[in-house]
Amino acid sequence: MEIGLPKEIKDQEFRVGLSPASVQSLCQQGHQVFVETHAGIGAGFPDEDYLQAGAKIVTTSDQAWNRELVVKVKEPLPAEYGLLQSGQLLFTYLHLAADRTLTEQLIQTNVSAIAYETVEVTLPDRISLPLLTPMSVIAGRLSIQFGARFLERQQGGRGVLLGGIPGVKPGKVVILGGGVVGTEAARIAVGMGAQVTILDINVERLSYLETLFGSRVELLYSSSRHLEQVLPTADLLVGAVLVPGKRAPILVSRALVQKMAAGSVIVDVAVDQGGCIETLHTTSHTDPVYEAEGVLHYGVPNMPGAVPWTATQALNHSTFPFVAKLANHGLKALEKDAALQKGLNVYQQRLVHPAVQQVFPDLAA
């Protein structure tokens, strides 16, 4: 199969859909991989690495897109809509619940679109999202790293050191959601010495988090009352809410944001699914924060793009087995792999993923 690997064009998105190691494996299986020049340079993979792996380097984006299977990291942007082709297989993060325009474009162009974030593996005790997890781990850890930076006075923040020092109390971090993102955010915040609170509606998850953190983290059931109690004293609020395939629910109203201290910081990792903070909108790595109600808001949807060397390899470790199945079997791979089947969002000019159908019911017909 011919596989295209375009260069990402999202603002400061330096990740790449396939590492040279993944490309080498695909070429050894008899596939042809067409890599847009400099697609991997931001992640530390020059064209020479791809050539040595057996790929062909192409000079324009349309030469990479004009293939049976296109592997990316982020969703197609408007400048790429014209490159979508009927019958093409697209494998990437899509987050369609937050983007009606892209959803319509994929339907109109008859692309078979499989979203990393909805590939689902059913385990005995839980549902796993194997292609979302590695980036969630990175985003969770980065949320504290970025939050700590923007709390610095020179960045417009309160001037709070999250870890405090002897004689001065530490900063307070409030995390909405105890899933992968929330857990990793708490891990870093605790390591820095911050005072940490996690809110979640899953009591079993809270019990599990107690086994991880013990008394070092305050664990609360997520309710309006508890939010009203903890937010006014938060120096850093991290939104870590995930409803697979759906838009994130708004948990923090503008009125609650107004009660937060001036110069405090909000980092909403859920922004790629619409965000869970009423006052938050999408930002970019180039212009990451803005002030609303006296609070700094960080809403970059591709946070792991800040650490592309780490993130590309972590993502490829999870995506490659599925890429190989698509390369070897095409759409028939979905019949052989239930997890991959659940990743299918758009097929034969129809929106087919149940969760996204609930967001755009008129596109499901």
Rank of each mutant, 00 (worst) to 15 (best):
G140D: 09
M192W: 14
G191E: 07
R153T: 10
H226T: 07
R153Y: 11
L161M: 10
F150E: 07
S222C: 15
S207Q: 14
G177N: 05
D125T: 14
V168L: 13
G182H: 06
L162H: 00
I165T: 05
V121D: 14
A115Y: 05
S223C: 13
P170W: 03
Y208Q: 11
L227R: 09
S136P: 10
V121K: 13
L129P: 02
Q229G: 06
A139F: 10
L129A: 11
G140Y: 12
S128D: 12
S224P: 04
M135I: 08
R158D: 02
G214N: 03
S222D: 12
G164H: 00
L219P: 09
F146R: 03
P130R: 01
V217R: 01
L209Y: 04
E117L: 14
T183Q: 13
L142W: 02
K172Q: 01
N202W: 10
L129M: 13
V137R: 12
T197C: 15
L151W: 08
N202L: 14
G191W: 13
R225N: 08
F213E: 03
G214V: 08
L206R: 07
L129R: 07
V217N: 05
S215L: 01
E152W: 03
P130F: 07
Q195D: 00
I165D: 02
R153K: 15
K169M: 09
S128F: 15
A185P: 08
A194P: 06
S215G: 01
I165Q: 02
Q155K: 08
L219Y: 09
A139Y: 07
M135P: 09
E184A: 13
F213C: 05
G159W: 06
S128N: 13
G157Y: 03
H226Y: 10
S224Y: 11
N202P: 11
R158Y: 00
T197S: 15
A148N: 10
P170C: 02
T122Y: 12
L227G: 05
A185E: 06
V168R: 01
